[in-house]
Nucleic acid binder design. Structure first.
Lengths: 239, 239
DNA sequence: CGAAATCGTGACTGAACAGTCAGAATATCT
DNA sequence: AGATATTCTGACTGTTCAGTCACGATTTCG
């Protein structure tokens, strides 16, 4: 079997490469275990910096192993292919995102008025900012390739993007049903919020250091809340 | 000279490929001219659909010429390489965008109050919607690869993205200076507006047909204006 | 119509690439 | 320490790809 690049192989039947380091030999404390973690981390880290510089598709396995200081054969002991590597790189984002979405929905469940909306969204934004800056490089990669087609090595990023969009839509629908936001098509408000937050994060991570200030996140919140808030509550936010 | 893929060649000194169809022989009316246009269009169209499906980097010249029904040598008579092709594909977007930005700025120059802001932005949005739906496939490609690194075949898209960001920032600063929008960091409001509009456009173009309704654009405007409007003017938008 | 140019073609080249594998190196266990 | 299993290594293979070029087809122009 030889697939050359990631050009539409999509034929793998069951995944499960014959050999992958599950946790076969010396567990946890051993030198084997430490080596494994170090190697996987070196590969992921080298990939990440290369992919941020030149894009996921342009980076080759040879470059990755060269930069990571590892033999090519070793790569395939840890990852089935580039798509598998990308999946491993972005995987740490999903859980904290999902949990923050869930906590925000729970907070909205208890919300009775507009100030509860502000509180719930404020907490949500703070949590998201934590995730974004804790996983800066990975989030940059996600943002960079976020709208990639669902095929090829960028598929895991596209999957995560779909998850974010769906979660945001669910949240927006929920808030709207409970009368916390202006009535209207929740797909629009969800898209606006996701697009605005992600683009701002992209700027903050890729460029301007000064955009990382907490006041920037506050400004985003104020703008979004004023745009989305249910009419009838107090007018615009107090600056 | 052989560069294999677009892997960091970046060595070209002066561009200007030895032979490219400027307008050498039979001008304008001739059969040559018609053939040229038809071929270039076939290549661009084939590229566009392939790139939308699998991404700019994954598509090969062989696939493009095969789909376009053209010999490989002909490709290189029309485009220097894939980057050149991408530049030709997205080029038609820049002019209308620039002109809309300029018209919007001019409208803001004449604006005296909040309703002028709404009028200027409303017209701007209508013009943008026109561009977006007139060049649907190209805009989809732009949105798909918008945050790509500035190297490689996606560079022309990254350039266009920088242009959009810079223009939006200029517009936001201008509106803010004139007191038409809430005081604050214009980088934030510009990022919010661009991110929101582009993400919504991405949804409308890639997915849901129903998001193409003009009422959706109106909803976007209302949300953004309420989030951005200078305090002191009338409260939230009338529905 | 015939000459002179441009244009189209597709086989060809050299290089880069993904993925493999036999043997060397290393860790673990007794 | 010795035996055994796992892991690392990098040379190797077959393929794919970008870019070229000599030649035949087509168009233009006198």
């Amino acid at each position: 079997m030889q697939t050359r690049k990631s050009r539409r192989p999509r034929v793998q039947v069951e995944a499960a490469p014959s050999v992958l380091p599950t946790e076969r030999p010396g567990q946890e404390g051993g030198k084997r275990d430490a080596n494994r973690k170090a190697r996987a981390a070196a590969l992921a880290s080298a990939s990440l910096s290369l992919m941020l510089q030149r894009g996921v598709e342009a980076v080759t396995i040879d470059e990755i192993v060269s930069k990571a200081g590892v033999a090519k054969g070793s790569f395939y002991r840890y990852f089935r292919d580039k798509e598998d590597l990308v999946r491993a790189i972005v995987a740490p984002l999903e859980r904290p995102l999902r949990e923050s979405f869930e906590r925000c929905k729970a907070a909205l469940s208890d919300a009775r008025a507009a100030e509860s909306l502000a509180a719930a969204y404020g907490l949500f934004a703070a949590e998201l900012a934590g995730v974004i800056f804790a996983h800066g490089a990975v989030v940059r990669l996600y943002l960079q390739e976020r709208r990639a087609p669902g095929e090829g090595p960028r598929a895991p990023i596209a999957d995560l993007a779909r998850f974010v969009d769906a979660s945001a839509l669910e949240l927006a629908s929920f808030a709207c049903q409970r009368g916390l936001t202006r009535p209207g098509d929740s797909r629009v408000s969800a898209a606006v919020v996701v697009g605005a937050a992600e683009h701002l994060a992209s700027m903050a991570l890729a460029g301007d250091e000064s955009l990382r200030d907490p006041s920037v996140a506050m400004e985003l919140i104020v703008i979004i809340l004023d745009g989305v808030r249910a009419t009838g509550s107090s007018a615009t936010s107090s600056a």
